[in-house]
Structures are given as structure tokens and as C-alpha cells.
């Protein structure tokens, strides 16, 4: 559900953009599950690759999207 850019959604106690949220979910989930499914080697390797995928997804989302918060620093700087 694409949202107009000027509107914000309140999810889990903070504001997000609908489109950005959808995109970040679509980025993180395949990276994480992909890391797990495509990992080389036995037992702990798939989990480790999955976790790395989650971390890469987090970093990518941090760089790709801007936080939707308005910061007011008041009179003291």
C-alpha cells in the first residue's frame, strides 16, 4: 500500500513512512533468509550467514532511509 510521501504511520511507538517500511522489509527479509538458504557448509554456517544478512539489511536500511522524527533541540545548543 503505497502512501503519499507527506504522510506518516505510527508503528510500534514511532513514525515511519509506509513506502519506506515496505521497502525495508523487502530488503531485510530476503537478505536474511537468503543468507540462510544459500550459505555454504554445514550446521552453524547457515545461521551465521542469516544473521549477517540481517545485519547487512539493517545497515543498508539505515543508509537508504531517513528517520521520520522531528528533532527540536530547544534553546540550548
Amino acid at each position: 500500500m503505497p502512501e503519499p510521501r507527506t504522510r506518516y504511520l505510527n508503528v510500534w511507538d514511532d513514525t515511519v513512512g509506509g513506502r519506506d517500511l515496505l521497502l525495508s522489509l523487502c530488503l531485510s527479509t530476503p537478505l536474511t533468509l537468503g543468507g540462510y538458504l544459500l550459505a555454504p557448509g554445514p550446521a552453524p554456517m547457515p545461521l551465521i550467514c542469516g544473521l549477517c544478512g540481517a545485519l547487512v539489511g539493517f545497515l543498508a536500511n539505515t543508509l537508504l532511509f531517513r528517520p521520520k522524527r522531528r528533532i527540536d533541540t530547544g534553546e540550548e545548543v
Partner: peptide, 16 residues
């Protein structure tokens, strides 16, 4: 750090 990044990370960890 956008809130989206936290949400997406927890979501994908649980899916994994």
C-alpha cells in the same frame, strides 16, 4: 537510524 531499519531487522530475524 530510521525506525524502519529496526522493524525490518526484528521482522527478518523472527522469520529466519
Amino acid at each position: 537510524i530510521p525506525h524502519e531499519a529496526f522493524l525490518a531487522m526484528f521482522f527478518s530475524l523472527v522469520m529466519l
